[in-house]
């Protein structure tokens, strides 16, 4: 219940936040929803001297959608991702991933920017961002820059963020016609981080062949990983059961997980195949014009 003391400042502008982060260097941390940082501090695993609270900076919690892209501000809470109708229309896969995060209390405080910056390998926002080839917008003393998501995640809890850089938004491509997605994850107990998670995004042409295929798997490496081998097997094919089985088998061969207290490497590999297969099945059903009738948004087991 008790946190170690720290100095606290709540800037009203991004520039001020960045100046504070520069001034205090490694001793300072951004505070967003606090649902990852505060537990780490509670456990003594992080001990920043200065917290730069970005919750009061106006404009960071906006959701903007035009025809081609959705821009989700860093301070948008997981609960808003889950419930915002514009976001659901433009990027249903992110909206369906949000309720899989933790519990309702975590979702009311936790933010999209915090999830990206924290970079947990089993987290849902990074998984979906990876499958969609999203872009992370960041700002630092040198100005703003865009980081493609595959360059943003550098390793376990590691990102390409510079010491005084702040995530400002996540930019995702909007759902196109004849595009479908699927999500599946294995969790031990409701609210836990996933042991293994999968997100598939498929695009079909008029003849029903795959023109676009993206498969991302979480929980099998230091960050969510794209399954390039499986994707190659899908492109140009009619995604029938055989093709999806082959792609799922390729996922099993492509992942190289490690054993830990939650699951052995073999089990993770086997479950990566199962979750990928379920996600692919749901993606085909949705892309095939069955629109949102592919059952529950996300399969959890």
């Amino acid at each position: 219940m008790y946190l170690p003391p720290f100095r606290y400042v709540a800037p009203r502008t991004l520039d001020e936040a960045i100046a504070l982060l520069r001034e205090h260097g490694d001793d300072a941390k951004v505070l967003a929803g606090g649902q990852s940082l505060l537990p780490l501090m509670m456990l003594g695993l992080a001990r920043p001297g200065v917290l730069v609270d970005v919750n009061g900076i106006p404009g960071l919690d906006r959701i903007e959608a035009d025809g081609d892209a959705v821009r989700v501000g860093a301070l948008v809470r997981h609960r808003a991702v889950e419930t915002d109708p514009r976001l659901r229309a433009a990027c249903p896969v992110l909206a369906d991933a949000a309720p899989l995060i933790g519990n309702i209390r975590v979702r009311h405080r936790g933010t999209v920017g915090g999830s990206l910056a924290h970079a947990d390998p089993a987290a849902e926002v990074p998984l979906v961002a990876t499958a969609l080839g999203a872009t992370v917008e960041v700002r630092g003393a040198g100005g703003a820059r865009d980081i493609p998501v595959h360059e943003f995640f550098r390793g376990y809890l590691e990102t390409a963020l510079g010491p005084a850089e702040v995530v400002t938004a996540l930019r995702l491509p909007a759902r196109g016609p004849r595009m479908g997605y699927g999500l599946a994850e294995l969790v031990r107990r409701s609210g836990d981080f996933a042991t293994v998670s999968a997100c598939a995004v498929l695009g079909l042409d008029g003849g029903g062949r795959c023109t676009h295929a993206a498969v991302a798997i979480g929980g099998v490496g230091p960050s969510a990983l794209r399954m390039r081998g499986a994707e190659r097997l899908l492109i140009g094919q009619l995604p029938g059961d055989r093709t999806l089985d082959d792609a799922a088998d390729a996922v099993r061969a492509e992942v190289a997980p490690e054993s830990d207290v939650h699951a052995s490497a073999d089990y993770r590999r086997a479950m990566a195949r199962v979750m990928a297969r379920r996600a692919l099945g749901a993606a085909v059903a949705r892309a095939g014009g069955e629109s949102r009738a592919a059952g529950p948004g996300a399969v959890r087991s």
């Binding site: 606090g34 609270d53 609960r79 209390r105 975590v106 405080r109």
Partner: peptide, 11 residues
């Protein structure tokens, strides 16, 4: 909105 009082600052 339901929140974790244990993971929210008093401020």
């Amino acid at each position: 909105a339901p929140i974790n009082a244990c993971l929210t600052l008093g401020v």
